[in-house]
Design a protein around this nucleic acid. Structure first.
Lengths: 124, 124
DNA sequence: CAATTAGTTTACTTTTAGTAACCTGGTATA
DNA sequence: TATACCAGGTTACTAAAAGTAAACTAATTG
C-alpha cells in the first residue's frame, strides 16, 4: 500500500490495465510484519515486557522455539535497536535481554494482536 | 504466553529451574502471527479492505508478490473464513475476493501495525 | 567425579518462499 | 486470421528460512 492514496486498477481505452499507487516495494504493513512478524519474534518481545530476562529462561518460557531461533531473533532485534543485550557477569557468564524504548513501542500492536487472537480463538 | 498469569522461572532448593506458565504450545501472539503474519498475508487483507478485488488486480497491486504466493495466501485465508471467493462469471472466467466479517476484524490490528511501522520508519 | 547450568555454535533435514514459464479459454486489434 | 493480450490459475525447479539434536567451553553443586 502506498503511503498516499489507495491502490486501484484502471483500464485504458484498449482494455489494458494500469495500477495506480501499486506497492512497488513492500508496503508499511509488509515491512512491519517483517520486523515483528518473524516466527517467534512477537512472542520474544512480549516475554521481555516485564523486564530483563536471561537467555535460557527465555528458552524455557517459549516452549516450542529452539535455542537457535531464539538466538537468531534476539540478534535481529538487537541489530534493529529493539532489544538490549547486557552481560551481567563473566565467570560464570550471564546475559540478560531487555526491551529498548523502540522495542517497547511495539508492545501495543502485539497486545492488540493477542486480544484479537484470543477473542476469535484463532488457531495456527 | 499463558492466558492466565505471567510466565516466570523459579529455582528450587537444588538450583534447578522450573518454568511457571510456560508456553507449551504457541501462545496467542504466536498463533495470531501465524494467521496474519505470513509473508504478504497482511498486505492482501489490507488491499481487500475497500471491497471485492479480482485476482489479477490484487497481483498488480501487490508489487513483489508472485501469483503463486497470492494464490496460496488467498486459499489459506478462505480456509480460515477470513476471505470469500466468488466466481462472478464463467465465459470469460472472473473471480473476486473479499473480506468476511472475521477477515474485517483483523483490519484494526493491521492498521495499528501500519501506523507503528510508518511512525518508526521501520525497514525490513 | 558426575551432573547440571549458561550461552552459544554446528551440522544436517525439512519446510517455505520465490521465479518463471506454461495452460485453458476468451476477446480485441491489425 | 494471426497475434497479442486478458483472466485465473498450475507446474517445475531453486533458494532461503526454520527446525532438530548434539556438541562445546567454562563454571558450580553435591
Amino acid at each position: 500500500m502506498s503511503e498516499k492514496g489507495k491502490t486501484t486498477v484502471e483500464t485504458d481505452g484498449y482494455g489494458r490495465k494500469k495500477t495506480i499507487n501499486a506497492c512497488y516495494e513492500p508496503c508499511s504493513i509488509e515491512k512491519g510484519m517483517r520486523v515483528i512478524g518473524g516466527k517467534w519474534t512477537g512472542s520474544i518481545i512480549f516475554h521481555l515486557k516485564d523486564g530483563p530476562v536471561r537467555f535460557n529462561d527465555l528458552n524455557r518460557m517459549l516452549g516450542g522455539a529452539s535455542k537457535k531461533i531464539i538466538d537468531q531473533r534476539l540478534k535481529e532485534l538487537e541489530g534493529r535497536g529493539m532489544v538490549l543485550r547486557t552481560v551481567i557477569s563473566d565467570r560464570p557468564v550471564a546475559v540478560t535481554y531487555e526491551l529498548t524504548e523502540f522495542g517497547r513501542s511495539a508492545l501495543k500492536v502485539l497486545d492488540d494482536l493477542r486480544v484479537w487472537s484470543e477473542k476469535h480463538n484463532v488457531q495456527a
